[in-house]
Nucleic acid binder design. Sequence first.
DNA 1: GTAGTGATTTTCT
DNA 2: GAAAATCACTACA
Length: 203
Amino acid sequence: MATKILPRDFYERPTLEVAHEMLGKWICFQANGTRLASKIVEVEAYIGQDDPACHAASGKTKRTAVMFGPGGHSHIYLIYGMYHCLNLVTEPDGKAAALLLRAAEPREGIKTMLRNSPATTKPEQLLSGPGKLCRSFGLSLEQNRFDLTSGSLTVEDHGESVSRICQTSRIGIRKGTEKNWRFYDADSASVSARPKKELASTR
DNA sequence: GTAGTGATTTTCT
DNA sequence: GAAAATCACTACA
């Protein structure tokens, strides 16, 4: 199966549509000659216009500027001072929206990922969460605003698909939990499912 | 086994 | 000065 990098057209469509099709695609990153690749199994949609949880909801800032630009770019930022989150910008230029990659299944470069995450020993748990995903990939603010169509960070179609897609409320945010914009592969062991906390909205 | 809390830095008000 | 889309460790049953 020939692999192909997703064109910018793929991203510049309605975010919820892209989110659905993003599951099963591969996220790939080349670092120091090592190729890392993993299958995306969990994403969340953040749409600036009608989403109180989106960082871009309260206006365009330096931090969220890339979300207002054209789709097909990476948006990485630091959360809670210690962890990074990787977003894929969607929608055409001028509309703020992005997909947060929450979890993936390791496919290539697992050895390197294990070295990046010493506390994690099981491969299926290397990428079971947005913070862990970035740590295992070695992503930081250096990779912010990368072009996903022509850089060392890309999303590819390997012909894999997801058998069952679940749609639930989002996790780990304090506003906008009523939006059911979280999508994940129901059959994957790498999903960062936390059923008990999903029901409890307060913290 | 579940539940609760601390870590740590970038960005915005 | 405060918040932020998280994770891992500790305590206790």
